[in-house]
Amino acid sequence: MNLINRYVTEVGKRLPLLKGREDIEKELRSTLEDMLEDRAQKAGRPADEALEIELLKEYGAPQTVAATYNPQPYLIGPRLFPFFLMVLKIVIPIVVTVLLVLAGIRAATETPFMGADFVNIVGAGLGEAFSAAIAAFGNIALVFAILERVLPDEQIDDLKMEEDWNPASLAAEPDPDSVKRGELIAEIVFTFVGLAILNLYPNILGMGFFMEDEWIFIPMFSAAFFAFIPWINATFLAEILLDIYLLRSALWTPLTRVAKIIIEAAGIALAVIILRTPNIIGFTGKSFANSSISADAAQTLTTVFTIMFPVILIIVIIVQGIEIAKAVYRLFKAKYQTR
């Protein structure tokens, strides 16, 4: 019986402590003893080690036997898994976005948009965002793994939403290739307004005030920025033309998706170049020297504009990056589905 005891102990080591380990061990021992006795009777000799070995070999490896008592060895079981995914989809994008925006602000405020420091901060920001995403994933998985083990089955079942589900609430299945007209129209309008301001009314981009009955205007951007106007015009016009074409055709095609990717990539490239060009903002604290604005207030205004502009550009870059990712995803998905 010595081998049986050792075998039962080995199985027991692999059984969940809280799910009747001792009871299972006791029952297993009793069964093995019954089986051994049966075999000894059939063999016409007393139970010996050879019979024990034969029996245990037939019964199976301890880990295999233990696994039969734990048929669902999930870290997170199928009932909690949808909630786990839902939480991941909410938390990870928020964590990554917040860290990337913070890195963008740091890069914009702590460096002159050029050189090694800028690259270092942006690189460190990406690294932090990646680490935070992994850490968030690990922590969420840990919490759900604990919930899987401590929540009673009834409570997990209570989380199910199937009973409240109504088929009538199903939205019409969106065609991934159909264009969203509202989005396109809004994009055309805003891009057109942007074009008009930059080309026809650049004088409204800045700060104006009366000084001794005289209107003083300080432009927000320097000549360095206006050197980019032809390029900005080109990307904006391309965007408008593509949007108009899409409105007419009502459907995305691989060609229009590639065009979208190129335009958005050009937009990102332009935004990065502008971001890294020094002295884009046209005024400094000294620009207000002749105004009634105090030196401190002037400095604060300058700082706010100096920070705001790169932040806006970084947001533009992120949005365009998302647009590219969506277009690439749709492009490859369509390609895969047509195979």
Binding site: G20, I24, E27, G60, T64, V65, T68, Y69, P71
Partner: peptide, 10 residues
């Protein structure tokens, strides 16, 4: 198989 029956009984 005993590996099926015993866990099933439990």
């Amino acid at each position: 198989d005993q590996g099926t029956l015993y866990p099933l009984l439990r």
